[in-house]
Design a protein around this nucleic acid. Structure first.
Lengths: 195, 195
DNA sequence: CCTACCGATCGGTAGG
DNA sequence: CCTACCGATCGGTAGG
């Protein structure tokens, strides 16, 4: 009787990506070896190379999966029947929520882009650009008087507030993720109104 | 006759740190080898180890020098006889100016902290905290009604806007560093007033 | 200030 | 002849 793909094939792949996210976040992509990853999983390196063709492809998987969640959350928020101002607040909360729920993956997505092979990097960058474009459009809807050349910088400052949280925000700290998201949304909204 | 220190000792040290900043910014600290650094300098690895005891110590020098510039700029701005709101704007401009003038060092300071040995890392972190505390005090002076637990997050969102620029801002782009600094200051000031 | 090396570890693959 | 793995080791390169 021919043996088929292991029943837990996708669970094993998920376990590898999950542990890789943790190690890459802690030690950096170059600082965490495949041997480290194998040891953390209680498996051999060969086991890892059975599931993924290269170390870089595991990094791509970490980033790809997380970026899919971010994009899906953005699509979901933008499709809602809400005023643009409420959409921005909802977006800030969604991003912060995903950051808290997947801090390792978030950190890897933000820090290790340059470690990807060019083709893979281009895939990630293209989707990040779409996300940035969405926010830019939202800011323009909120304040149509915002000068066109300042729209991209304004969107990037918003992302800066949200993305930089990975360096200081602690889920077990005194201020919650939702409060920080609201603070970032408020600075953007009040600033946008005043400009 | 005992040989004395080479006349160009400090120039050579400076050249090493400067090139290291460029390579560490481009390829990451772990991605740039000491051999890469030597080759870029047209020198041997041994030459480098004559001037610095370890690869990590060169990294510390890159970060230390840049952070000194940031701290000095902050001290200078805070000592001026200006309303707090104007100090925040001047601070944003000073930080963006240093970023543009030393993009490599700025990037290294923000990205490679975890590569420092613990004692050296603690030195850098302590001085970064002082800078953050200064901004926190400034924000509190601007709006004394800002709830105490939100003061640190507000300061970190400000730093997020400024620091994140290293991922997207180009000095040869359509919008100048001063404009971006003013935009970040405006979002913070208008937001702080509205909260 | 260089060439010549070291102990160790890197990402990836062999046979079975 | 298949898939799922292991212990051991490959050719090169890292920091020093």
């Amino acid at each position: 009787m021919a043996r088929t793909q292991a029943a837990d094939y996708s669970e094993r792949r998920a376990a590898i990506v999950d542990m890789a996210a943790r190690l890459y976040a802690d030690k950096g992509f170059l600082g965490a070896s495949v041997a480290d990853l194998a040891e953390a999983l209680g498996a051999s390196k060969s086991l890892i190379y059975h599931y993924y063709p290269s170390k870089e492809e595991i990094l791509f998987e970490v980033m790809d999966q997380h970026l899919r969640l971010l994009s899906a959350a953005a699509e979901d928020v933008l499709a809602r029947d809400l005023p643009p101002r409420d959409k921005l607040r909802a977006l800030a909360r969604a991003f912060m929520g995903l950051y808290v729920g997947a801090a390792d993956r978030h950190k890897v997505l933000l820090n290790e882009l340059s470690a990807l092979p060019p083709a893979r990097r281009a895939e990630i960058v293209a989707r990040q650009r779409r996300l940035i474009g969405d926010v830019e459009q939202l800011l323009t809807a909120i304040n149509p008087d915002l000068s066109p050349p300042l729209r991209r910088p304004a969107a990037m400052l918003f992302f800066g507030m949200i993305n930089w949280t990975h360096t200081w925000f602690r889920a077990d700290g005194p201020v919650g993720a939702e409060q920080v998201a609201d603070l970032a949304a408020d600075l953007t909204l009040l600033g946008l109104r005043g400009l």
